[in-house]
Design a protein around this nucleic acid. Sequence first.
DNA 1: GCGTAAACGAGACGGTACGTCGCGTCTTAGG
DNA 2: CCTAAGACGCGACGTACCGTCTCGTTTACGC
Lengths: 199, 199, 199, 199
Amino acid sequence: MTDAAETAPTRRRTSIGGRRNPESAAAILDAAAAILAENGLGGFSIEAVARRAGAGKPTIYRWWPNKAALLIDVYARQKETVLQADTGSLQGDLEDVLSRLFDFWRHTPAGAAFRSIIAEAQSDPEALERLRAFLIERRAYVREIVERGIARGDLPADADGAAIVEMLFGFAWMRLLTGDLGAAEDIPRRVHLILKGAA
Amino acid sequence: MTDAAETAPTRRRTSIGGRRNPESAAAILDAAAAILAENGLGGFSIEAVARRAGAGKPTIYRWWPNKAALLIDVYARQKETVLQADTGSLQGDLEDVLSRLFDFWRHTPAGAAFRSIIAEAQSDPEALERLRAFLIERRAYVREIVERGIARGDLPADADGAAIVEMLFGFAWMRLLTGDLGAAEDIPRRVHLILKGAA
Amino acid sequence: MTDAAETAPTRRRTSIGGRRNPESAAAILDAAAAILAENGLGGFSIEAVARRAGAGKPTIYRWWPNKAALLIDVYARQKETVLQADTGSLQGDLEDVLSRLFDFWRHTPAGAAFRSIIAEAQSDPEALERLRAFLIERRAYVREIVERGIARGDLPADADGAAIVEMLFGFAWMRLLTGDLGAAEDIPRRVHLILKGAA
Amino acid sequence: MTDAAETAPTRRRTSIGGRRNPESAAAILDAAAAILAENGLGGFSIEAVARRAGAGKPTIYRWWPNKAALLIDVYARQKETVLQADTGSLQGDLEDVLSRLFDFWRHTPAGAAFRSIIAEAQSDPEALERLRAFLIERRAYVREIVERGIARGDLPADADGAAIVEMLFGFAWMRLLTGDLGAAEDIPRRVHLILKGAA
DNA sequence: GCGTAAACGAGACGGTACGTCGCGTCTTAGG
DNA sequence: CCTAAGACGCGACGTACCGTCTCGTTTACGC
């Protein structure tokens, strides 16, 4: 069971001329996701990814400056899933967002990837900056949902949207980082707690 | 506090018989804390700690099975500060706890240590278990404050104490992990959000 | 099968007052010999000897300044076997000495011990000095046999006894050091070669 | 010869592509020889060699599986000196071979290297095997000289060449291992003893 | 006959070296 | 100019022994 052979079994991948080979990029991201899913951050190294992808280390370093960047790409590659949600009520929308997020983290390599990104950010300032930027973007998305709820009248006009979003993300992170994604059933209560507080 | 050992290592530390030498343990924890404070988790390695402490690596491994255990001890060593709080109201008590916690994380090596512990736990299952155990204990402490508030009548008897505590810790972790401990001024609003939601 | 229990099964060994405990010395030498016989020089360490002997390391260091000294004692402890030989002819006497020596090296821990002593002497000048001293003594013994042969008329009076002895020992060492003690059957031819040369 | 690398390490050595860098190999062997010459086997460690060679330990382990292999290469690297010898008589040829060998061992790091190889072989079975193989080859070379002497009529046709060679090597080893290479003046007598015995 | 001295086991101490792994950089040979 | 390959210097990993130290205990000897 040579891992490298999984995605590109028959032929050896090589240069396609003076530009990036998308097959290589894909193989690298696939390999990275697979390693994360199987062995977690512990077994994740550039060497291991290169080995499994059948790629040269310099090829990885050419396109991703460091481990964090690669992890972020692994994460970003699968995030389409989480997007939309409109259930008619803010409570429902937020429940939906969090449920999807928990599922996404639990059932794809994304969870392991995101845990790794956070971990990496604790020792690498640049990775922290990337994480913060990413977080701002993600929060903005949920913020919109909250604002929509305010517009809809689910919350008073002066409700603190930023606080709501921050508390919910804090809750989600805590669950992710402590390996507690399983207990998704108290998402509704938590959302309710926050929304009632903001009312 | 590590200065004494650094500038005036008057005599060589050695065994004091067939049992643990507390001086060595102290020197190691001091060195670990100092490295964490100065270089962050990136520069933190058992080798570096041993070097700075003037200790042998095996001495460290004898007493701390891995990096995570050492980090937890570094953290635990300074936590007395956070304890007390009784301001008369639950809002005040929780504000006080969080403010002290933020200060503690910001102004001692404990913040860097705790960030490192969380990061480490993302790749080391055993470290994760230690972290969860630690977290349970810490939450229980804040939980007591909440229960006291309930007894006092600040919250209805059926208020969900666990949820309150979890949301507050989630908030604190988020701030710690994203390097946002500075903005402690919105602690009161966050506490208020939660308490109002629980009322 | 706790090794320490072999020689002193029931009771724990301890001090017998302000002087050397012969039981300890014996246990240490036994353990050293056993380790050498079973694992060779590779597995031989002061720690291992102490462990197996149920002795403290300082007890070993108190009586043997270094590994070489201990090895020499292990060797010396068993050498009585090799001694006497008087077959009536010099050829016979020397054959007898060499055969006994080969057997001694092959069938007791002494062979491993002596190989270890020689090895040790290549990195430790003091051990080399001890080895040379030991060698002088052993050669003198064989030298006597040769002189007896000269007196008996087996060799001319001007025969170079030192050379004879040195060549025979060189032969024996070579066999020992290359693990070739098995082929003892050509001892007679080698002795004959030398004696004929000296005639 | 190692000076160039030590005092003028003008530029950093690095990879030259996916194949062995001969400069690194040379630097490592130089460093090993120098350490052996200066500090003997006692100061010889892979770490020390790497340090002195300005090489990484893995680079050494990549090409030499263990200490013994490296020592053998150090030895082999300098052995061209010993080869030739044709003085017209077997006595002269053998004297020449032994004298050259003694000089070689005394005046180059080869002596220390070979002592170390023998020592290493006493604890490492694989090293012993390498040593035996090497020995067979070296003996074959001297054996040829002896056969040439037999062909020339210096010895009877039924002379035991193997015995002659073994006794001479045994003598040389003994001198090497006991630090007695100085007294080279009795080489002729020893050779004569053997040849007369074989006549 | 009792205190002292020395040896005992145990095991911690500061170290050095082990052999392995991953880092990020470099150079090749070949599309 | 990109690709797979893989060597390079570096440095941390966790382990094994080194030789030294101090402990608390156990005798025997000498005052």
